[in-house]
Amino acid sequence: MIGLLILFTFLAIIVVALGAILSKDITQSVMLFMGVGLGSVVLFFIFQAPDVALTEAVIGTGLSTAVFLLGIRHTSQEEAES
């Protein structure tokens, strides 16, 4: 059963990562990237690594999203059409 849980979490992470790469809006891309970190927290917890899960929960979903959002607040929000 644990294998099915791992499989579905990996599928969710891959879908979210594809969305983060293919989305045209930068803010949406950053928020979807937060989903990758959230899925990683679940997987690290399943893999019996609570230290790494705690670090990823604080950094991957908390502070790195905050740094991204603060950084892109004054750059261009839309990707330029080329």
């Binding site: 230290d51 705690l54 670090t55 604080v58 502070l63 905050a66």
Partner: peptide, 25 residues
């Protein structure tokens, strides 16, 4: 708490330091 209980439970200097930084954020 996370920093000083690093040798007993999950956590430690790296995680606790970042939690303190989020308080400043």
């Amino acid at each position: 708490y996370i920093v000083i209980h690093g040798h007993l439970s999950p956590g430690g200097g790296f995680q606790g330091g970042v939690v303190i930084a989020t308080a400043f954020l």
